[in-house]
């Protein structure tokens, strides 16, 4: 029921978004979202857009993952885990 992949809004028509999925255009209700624009990526569930993809936050997440790597490195700045790289 849930499509994991975000879809790009191609057009907006009468409060609905037109998205393309596997080469077929589909109409998606935008009732649950505010300020959707053409070109936005939306998450679609059972015919409704339930969320919008925040591209800025996507970049933040990638930075956060880099931070996780840094913290975990035995040479990282946190100091908590010095030596953990040698545990096994």
């Amino acid at each position: 029921m849930c499509l994991a992949i975000p879809m790009k809004v191609k057009r907006i028509r009468d409060g609905s978004g037109i998205v393309e999925y596997r080469g077929v255009e589909r109409e998606v209700s935008l009732l649950l979202l505010e300020d959707v624009r053409e070109g936005d990526y939306i998450l679609v569930h059972a015919g409704f857009a339930i969320g919008k993809i925040d591209e800025e936050a996507a970049r933040e997440t990638l930075d956060l993952i880099e931070d996780l790597f840094q913290e975990q490195s035995p040479y990282g700045t946190s100091g908590r885990r010095i030596g953990s790289g040698f545990d096994d």
Binding site: P6, L31, L32, L33, E34, L43, I50, G51, K52, I53, D54, E55, A57, A58, E60, T61, L64, L68, Q72, R80
Partner: peptide, 26 residues
């Protein structure tokens, strides 16, 4: 990491979609 550090937190690894307050209209 939380378990190893002896912590329990609510964290967000899906920030491009999930906001603290969720979808207000929904």
């Amino acid at each position: 990491r939380q378990i190893k550090d002896g912590k329990a937190l609510c964290e967000n690894a899906y920030r491009r979609a999930v906001k603290e307050a969720g979808n207000r209209k929904a």
